[in-house]
Design a protein around this nucleic acid. Structure first.
Lengths: 301, 301
DNA sequence: GATTTATCATAACAATATTTTATCAAATTA
DNA sequence: TAATTTGATAAAATATTGTTATGATAAATC
């Protein structure tokens, strides 16, 4: 392995072309300089300087090494600059959450990034279990999940909720017989969402997700409502997702006797303090959630 | 400065997640590993691993350092690979010569490069004095010049010659009165070339370059013959340059009573052995010069 | 939940490596 | 050619590094 002190000596030597002056430059004695260069050359098994008496100049290998030495020094300097510093306005922010939450969150995050150009937003849409795993493995720093978990490695806090919404083709009312005849458009969280909403609002009629007639399945969040808008079935989704569907005329939300909301949890890795830049992210999420649930339409004027 | 041994220990530690096993891995004792990490963390003033009891995992700074460490190791490996090796078929070949020689030489060198794709040809057209300077400063390795110089830092050998050629507009003969009425098209080597040729072939008439009527000046080698082809003047150039002019019908070479040739010298830096790859270059130049002067037209069939 | 085992941290010591002082040899300069 | 500058070498001093012995703490086992 190359001794970095040797590199420094080499660079000074190249600058001064002088052993004695290099010694002064680096606060050492002249024999020390000689030894440094000797060891470096022996370590690499090449000669770096062609020394003819008093004059010295780089050999081709010396030129190669010079490029290497400069690169190394630059790299180390950059490392030291980047380590330890914890700017609240720059660096990578790695966030994972559900697809529906991602759709809602991403525009706000990008807006944030526009104000702080040195921020880098990485958003990974993933099911809750995967999200937890990503946090555990330090592949992501912040997670938003909808199920409460207890894990010794995870910090979890309630930060808001998402209203669940029974989405129907336009002009449908949401009576049970209607739902049955329409059938369910399933998606990755479909069973969980449907069970929650239907159990509470149709306690006598709903006998389990398995008994619900299925009309299709799609795992592309932005496309789940397409079959609904075509009158091919109904589904259950977070309200924010339904609100984002472009063709609002062709769908409608059933009014639920018992509203259902999913609690949103923010998770982080325990004993891994979040870098300062995540404060921006936190407040971004917070304001999104409060405005989003209290007055979902306000943002559209 | 970062101790490279510490980097190695860090990397093994990241791989094994185990101090004892790292010690075995690197043939050292466990306390040694502990010290390495401690020193590294103190040197950088950050903690690289979050250690909670038995488990350890990288901190964000640790991840940054990991990227750095891998980069460093790769860089050092590449350095060691590239040092010392002296393949006859790859690497940069830095050659400097006159513009006319460059025009002649470059196609041949490119052909060479096509056969040896790992060769890199750098050709710098420069006047003799500059060429010598480039060689002295190790900015170029091989030079072709037309004037003999004596310099304690320079090796110089005769390797061939270039025929000088009096270039006229088509249908001119080259009698002295004709030359006078045409006038001279000057270029960077114009004075030197003209003096040589005219002195020997018009010893009585020619009284010095200053007395020759000037009709223009251009330092773009490929364009010097343009005014000649338009009938605007005559000039003196190496024969190879004249032969490369595309519009041969509109120019002609005067037949000289006393042929003039410029000796070509190859120069290198003294005490700086040429890398093996220059053998290819040498033979390329040699064959070009022999075919070029012995039978200049042969290459065109 | 106590005991055992495994693992990392610490301290004193030993080994190693580095740097310096003193000196010499060679090359440049006067 | 002598004087001076400059780099190389050898021995000694110093600093650094790594090791052995041991202790503390966390995980594993009974």
């Amino acid at each position: 392995m190359i001794n970095p002190l040797h590199i420094a000596t080499f660079l000074s030597l190249h600058k001064t072309r002088h052993f004695t002056r290099t010694a002064e430059d680096l606060n050492m004695t002249q024999p020390g300089v000689t030894l440094h260069l000797q060891r470096l050359e022996r370590e690499l098994d090449v000669s770096l300087f062609a020394r003819r008496g008093k004059t010295m100049e780089l050999t081709p290998d010396g030129e190669t090494f010079l490029r290497f030495a400069r690169k190394q020094q630059k790299a180390e300097k950059e490392l030291r600059d980047s380590l330890g510093e914890d700017s609240p306005f720059c660096g990578e922010c790695r966030i994972t959450c559900s697809g529906s939450m991602a759709t809602r969150l991403y525009p706000a995050l990008l807006q944030l990034q526009e104000h702080h150009r040195e921020l880098r937003i990485s958003l990974e849409a993933a099911p809750d279990a995967t999200a937890v795993d990503l946090i555990k493995k330090n592949l992501m720093d912040l997670g938003l999940i909808t199920s409460f978990i207890e894990d010794p490695q995870i910090n979890i806090t309630r930060i808001g909720h998402e209203e669940l919404c029974l989405a129907l083709p336009a002009h449908h009312t949401g009576v049970w017989a209607d739902l049955l005849s329409l059938g369910y458009i399933d998606h990755p969280n479909g069973a969980h969402y449907a069970s929650q909403v239907l159990e509470k609002n149709y306690p006598r009629e709903f006998s389990g997700f398995a008994d619900l007639p299925q009309k299709g399945y799609i795992n592309q969040l932005s496309q789940i409502l397409l079959p609904v808008s075509e009158g091919l079935g109904f589904t259950v989704l977070p309200e924010s997702t339904v609100d984002l569907f472009p063709d609002q005329k062709r769908i409608c939300k059933a009014s639920l006797a018992v509203p259902c909301r999913e609690t949103l949890y923010l998770i982080t890795k325990k004993h891994r303090p979040l870098p300062n830049r995540y404060q921006l992210i936190r407040s971004c999420i917070d304001s999104l959630l409060s405005s989003g649930t209290a007055a979902p339409r306000e943002t559209n004027r």
